[in-house]
Computed example of a mutant assay.
Amino acid sequence: MKNNVLKLVLIFALLPASAFAEQLISKSVFVQLADPISHQFKKNRFAYFPAGTKLIKGELTADYRGSTRVLVYAENGIEAYIKEGMYWNKDQIHSFIKEGGNKWVFITRPKDIVKKISDKVKLVIGFSRGETYPLIEEDEDSFTIKVGKNKLPELGEDVNYKVSIPRINSKLVDLSKSLVLRDAGIFKLSIVDGISGIKKPCNTKTAIASKYGGKISGEVGFSLKKFWLELTAKGEVSAETETSKLEEFDKNENVSREYYTRSFNTGIYKLTRYKSCGAKQEYKYIYTNKDIDEIIIHREWAEKLDKDSRTGQVLVTCPQQYFDYFDELSEWNSDPEEIPFIISKTAKFKSLTTKECVKS
């Protein structure tokens, strides 16, 4: 038990002290995930941060393909590495405040707005991801901003139009309020005695313990009861909401499951991946949150979304596909604060670009 406590202390020693940590804000950018225990750079694991995502700068960096990646902790609970230059730093944030006050609107999804100039003249103004504007006013459905020579230089110095941007295409950020780790609630892998989850190989119904780092333990019949008791002792799980019964699985499926908690919060999150045995190897995911709300993601569920032709995973190659997936999960009443994490763990990130999508 002492070793587990020591490991926990060392892990949190790497987290920045929120009161003094540098605040950043992401541009529209794909990022690479950090290992949820060691905090190391994972070059083949991805997430997407829409413009306006608040970040806390960590202590670690990684050099990859000729550029530096900076460790950050995001307001959506994701720990990742972001490429230098793909965020607004503290000096730029101060410049925003000096120019237009504390509240700014960040464009997250492209949108063409038709502005009526007169009875005979209408102006189409195109807004792109990552554009920023001071907030003029807001209502239930939109944010009002002002555009002028910075956006429409060809119309002259004196042009200033008030334009309403739908909330779905934008995000309001209060630059005066710093992000703190307690509010972010970073998702972290739960480990007890080196065990981080379960695996169930093909041609058997029995789950066995999976050790952190991908190794499979010799233990058969993983002790969920012990797992819950250990997490409860750490104050991370409310024991009465959990079960110590391990279900049986179909022998024709390869199964892996990871257990997560969120920093400064109680509750367990489960992500179970099912992969069909044989040549097809199609994927299915079951995500269960701390309130035991569950969503099952598979090829048929994702009927309206772009999918990887081999695995059936939802395909994310560009921001539009990310938002399509986000909207579909929202339609199924998934918690918006958990959706970015779900996408980072279940989507097939491929041929990434912040421009046009690449189909499978």
Rank of each mutant, 00 (worst) to 15 (best):
P153V: 14
K234H: 14
P319C: 11
I97H: 03
K355W: 05
Y161K: 13
T311D: 07
Q40F: 11
S196T: 15
I25F: 00
S244Y: 07
F264L: 07
G130K: 13
Y283F: 14
N76T: 11
I93T: 02
P166L: 15
L224Q: 00
K83H: 07
E138F: 05
P50T: 08
N169W: 14
F12N: 01
I168F: 03
Y73R: 08
Y81K: 06
I11N: 00
Y260A: 03
L14N: 10
K350H: 00
L135R: 01
A34Q: 10
S38K: 15
S217H: 02
I208E: 13
S176T: 01
T206A: 14
E140C: 09
L179S: 00
D63G: 09
K151V: 14
E338V: 09
G185E: 06
K98P: 05
D308M: 14
Y212A: 04
K234Q: 15
F264G: 00
M86K: 14
K307F: 09
F49M: 12
K43Y: 09
L172Q: 01
F143I: 11
W301R: 04
T272L: 04
K234S: 14
T288F: 03
A17F: 05
E157F: 05
D306G: 05
S276M: 13
A347N: 03
P110V: 10
F127M: 08
P50S: 11
E137G: 04
L8Y: 06
T61Q: 13
N150G: 01
Y269G: 13
D91V: 04
P340M: 10
Y269W: 15
E247D: 06
K57R: 10
I56T: 05
R65M: 12
G197H: 05
G85R: 06
G130P: 00
E282C: 02
I165V: 08
G100Q: 11
A17E: 05
D139L: 07
Q313A: 07
V173L: 08
S176K: 05
D291T: 14
A47M: 02
N254W: 03
T241C: 11
E138R: 04
K103N: 07
S95E: 01
E294Y: 00
F187D: 07
F106Y: 02
S18F: 14
V237F: 05
Y287Q: 02
K116H: 03
F96W: 10
D291W: 10
P336Q: 15
E79L: 01
Y64K: 10
T144E: 14
E230S: 10
K188D: 02
W301H: 06
Q40A: 13
T354V: 12
R129T: 01
H94N: 15
